[in-house]
Amino acid sequence: MANPSVPQPDSHLPTIPGNENALRWDPGWLLVVSAMALLAILVFVVRDPFDRIFRFVLDGVRVTVVVTLVTFGLVLIIGMIGALGRLSRIAPLRGLATVYVEVVRGIPLLVQLYFWYYAFPSIVRDLGARWNIAGMKDFVANPYFMAILGLTLCYAAYMTEVYRAGIQSIPKGQMEAARSLGMTYFQAMRYIILPQAVRVILPPVGNEFITLLKDSSLVSAVAVSDLTRRGREFQAITPLPLHIYLMIGLMYLIMTLLSARVVSMLEAGVRRER
């Protein structure tokens, strides 16, 4: 992927009949380019106050991107562990994973973030006071750490279900064939089940990523200076709600549209592999 903005068909690959669509110009890029053009016009042509807002919130974009990417990386790993738990033959493991998924899915993300940022540190401090442990007594939560923790635990529960459904969509005979060849459970997962499940789960995983990118704006409520919070900070100094939230919304839109294109390119790649 030398230049991701131009989806070049791989010329050395034969075109599979019925799959020509994957090689055609993707109109989704038109939306991305339009949104970017609108942003450029606002910042460089219309300028005031958009250029001031843009410069002010730019470091919030970085925070949003970093929080989203770090969280998503962790979610991919923890979701896998959750899915293996949900599918485990060991009942207590299965129960634990199920309780985790059901509890987390049943509580609003904002409430979970409040819990990890406000309530959890106070529990640590209370325990520290009771046991007289200095490090715990004056525990102060790092907002970034707690925000990523909260987002991760919530989204890993969703991802657990995505993985589980993907793994279960692979016929039982595949695992049986792999095991009957002497492969261990994990070898069978690694070489047989997961490579096939990837095709199935890539679209919902991409969806989760885009939803996470948007939901990451909730971390602005727990002292993380992301894009949303930077907008609110600007608003506190210079009340221009229409301009500010137009700008913020447009910047989120560009990020989500871009992510959607990357996801669909990955999907096309996986389809073409065969």
């Binding site: 016929p171 005979g173 595949q174 049986e176 064939a177 009957s180 060849l181 002497g182 096939q196 065969r274």
Partner: peptide
């Protein structure tokens, strides 16, 4: 035992990928 015993299934169960 599984490494010493070959198994052929009704539905073949080849790995399609």
């Amino acid at each position: 035992v599984r490494a010493e015993v070959g198994m052929v299934f009704q539905q073949f169960n080849l790995f399609p990928h």
